[in-house]
């Protein structure tokens, strides 16, 4: 009896959480333009998406920024994690707390702060500022993903490589990086997901010359919801969902990351 109530309760919570998304997905396949009624099944809105030049351009920027910011933030974050690991305990605690601050900071504060910074430095808002912003907000997450993997590694592993004749550079390439690779991949996946997912920070740092998908959806929605928005949102949801599943799958295998 109690069990049944628990199940119903859980079901209701999930229904409440996912109802909007389910409605969104269903209506992205709705033939009728009006939102109130079902006019039959169609793929038209998805086809329309790829005919729209504006959307294609936004998709291009979204992916370009996600790829570049992932690569750069993963490299910078990994190097930072290796450095933090070699610090004294006090230094490590201080740096990690500083690192966690932007993670906990509301996006809107980060977005406004970055925008203010760029403007005060007289850097014109555009592709570069948006890219820099994405790199900046991804780095702390990469550090959080890579650091546990470094700490898990036997502290004599690097020494063992040197002992066997490897130069420090060779040991880094052939031993340390491969040993912590699961953490690096997790970090990269998180960075990529966050970049695709982000609206608030992009909105404040993109200026008027570039538009990514989330900004585009926002501006389209302001002009009234078209079914193409449903289709576009559905696609973004699916991409992010798949990425999250991959990240969680990695976690299940015991390659733990904290997020």
């Amino acid at each position: 009896m109690v069990k049944a109530i628990k199940r119903v309760y859980m079901g209701l919570v999930f229904l409440f959480l996912y109802a909007p998304i389910i409605v969104l997905i269903v209506f992205s396949f709705n033939k009728s333009k009006s939102r109130g009624q079902w006019g039959g099944f169609t793929f038209d809105w998805y086809i329309d998406l790829f005919k729209d030049r504006q959307i294609r351009e936004a998709l291009y920027f979204t992916i370009l920024i996600a790829v570049i910011s992932t690569v750069i933030s993963t490299i910078v974050g990994t190097i930072a994690a290796l450095g933090i690991n070699n610090m004294s305990r006090l230094g490590r605690t201080i740096v990690l707390n500083i690192n966690n601050l932007p993670v906990l900071n509301p996006d809107i504060v980060t977005g406004v702060a970055l925008m203010t910074l760029f403007i005060s430095l007289r850097i014109e808002l555009g592709f570069i500022t948006m890219l820099i912003s994405h790199i900046v907000f991804s780095i702390p997450y990469v550090i959080l993903a890579v650091l546990p993997k470094i700490r898990q590694m036997n502290k004599h592993t690097a020494e063992a490589a040197l002992d066997l004749g490897a130069t420090p550079a060779y040991a880094m390439r052939k031993v340390i990086i491969p040993e912590i690779m699961p953490g690096i991949i997790s970090g990269a996946l998180i960075a990529f997901t966050l970049s695709i997912d982000d609206f608030v920070i992009s909105f404040f740092t993109a200026g008027t010359s570039v538009t990514n998908l989330s900004i585009l959806i926002y501006s389209m929605a302001k002009r009234g919801v078209k079914p193409t928005i449903n289709a576009l949102s559905t696609l973004m949801f699916v991409v992010v969902l798949v990425l999250m599943l991959i990240i969680n799958k990695k976690n299940d295998k015991g390659e733990d990351i904290i997020i």
């Binding site: 036997n154 063992a160 002992d163 004749g165 490897a166 040993e179």
Partner: peptide, 19 residues
């Protein structure tokens, strides 16, 4: 430096390369 010395070490907790 360690990598140029003609000595090798068996570490206490082995420190094998897990990958």
């Amino acid at each position: 430096p360690a990598y140029k010395r003609n000595v090798n070490t068996v570490f206490q907790r082995y420190a094998l390369f897990t990958h």
